[in-house]
């Protein structure tokens, strides 16, 4: 079981993601904007953060940057889940330290599998270090 933070202002998307991840036994934290997400991440240090790029108050890219700047949050894997799919957007997010880039619309099963892969990688990484 892992703690996963989802930041997206879209409540139905949250239901969709939650449906697929809670089924795998994970615990979900939800944030409606980037600022709340950053705060939750600092408080709970989740095992994975899923970020939307376009959010009110503080966009996902800015949130990602701030996560990577924070001492304790720098190592948390981040998955971008966004409708922006231009090369610049993807490369920009990956350069800033995103570990995975999934574009909307997405295949829910595939998203769940990618989440598992990221978590597995993190566990083995933690075990070896």
């Amino acid at each position: 079981m892992a703690v996963i933070l989802l930041a997206d202002d879209d409540d139905i998307l949250a239901e969709l993601v939650r449906h697929h991840l809670e089924r795998n036994g994970h615990q979900m934290l939800l944030a409606g904007d980037g600022e709340a997400a950053l705060q939750l991440a600092q408080e709970h240090l989740p095992d994975l953060v899923i970020l939307d790029a376009m959010m009110p108050i503080q966009g996902g890219i800015e949130t990602l940057r701030l996560l990577r700047e924070g001492d304790r949050t720098a190592q948390i894997p981040v998955m971008m889940l966004t409708s922006r799919k231009s090369e610049d957007d993807v490369v920009g997010a990956l350069k800033l330290g995103a570990n995975e880039y999934v574009t909307k619309p997405f295949r829910p099963q595939e998203l769940a599998a990618r989440v598992e892969a990221l978590l597995r990688f993190r566990r083995s990484d933690n075990a070896s270090s």
Partner: peptide, 12 residues
């Protein structure tokens, strides 16, 4: 309709 906008593939 909101879910349809978000999903693709067999589940959609």
């Amino acid at each position: 309709s909101h879910l349809l906008r978000l999903m693709r593939g067999t589940e959609r």
